[in-house]
């Protein structure tokens, strides 16, 4: 499962750096609640991704009952966790609601850009 750990480390660290960078820009520009909201959402997005990966080994090669139990616990825990920043942003004015939601998708955005931005390869007819 070393590959999984490495994958998680790579994307989570990128996500964290982006969110902190964005937060610093927002704070400098005076948009405190947007910056704080984005970091809050990002943290929970990263936690969600980590739990998702950490429970993978427990779902494979176990009995059916155990697999179903672990999967349900993983989903339940992750969704409950993701609900926390949303509720916080609805209840507390110091976190901007829309920036929290944007932050919740930071891992997905990092995943997309990590693969799409760096290389333009694979043209038809060219050996890769």
């Amino acid at each position: 499962m070393e590959v999984l750990r490495e994958t998680q480390k790579k994307y989570c660290s990128k996500a964290l750096v982006i969110s902190i960078f964005f937060c610093v820009i927002c704070l400098a520009a005076g948009y405190k609640s947007i910056g704080k909201g984005f970091v809050l959402g990002s943290i929970f997005s990263i936690i969600n991704f980590i739990i998702m990966g950490e429970t993978l080994p427990y779902r494979i090669g176990r009995s059916k009952k155990k697999t179903i139990f672990v999967s349900l616990c993983s989903i339940g825990t992750r969704y409950l966790l993701m609900a926390v920043p949303i509720i916080m942003s609805i209840r507390m004015e110091q976190f901007n609601f829309f920036s929290v939601i944007s932050g919740l998708f930071i891992v997905q955005v990092v995943l997309m850009f990590s693969y799409l931005l760096p290389k333009q390869e694979s043209n038809c007819g060219n050996q890769s």
């Binding site: 590959v3 999984l4 994958t7 993978l56 998708f105 997905q108 997309m112």
Partner: peptide, 18 residues
């Protein structure tokens, strides 16, 4: 290893809608 990685990334994206 690569297959698990792909599965994790794919599942993370599929989860966005929910």
């Amino acid at each position: 290893g690569d297959i698990f990685k792909s599965m994790l990334v794919g599942q993370a994206v599929a989860e966005s809608a929910s």
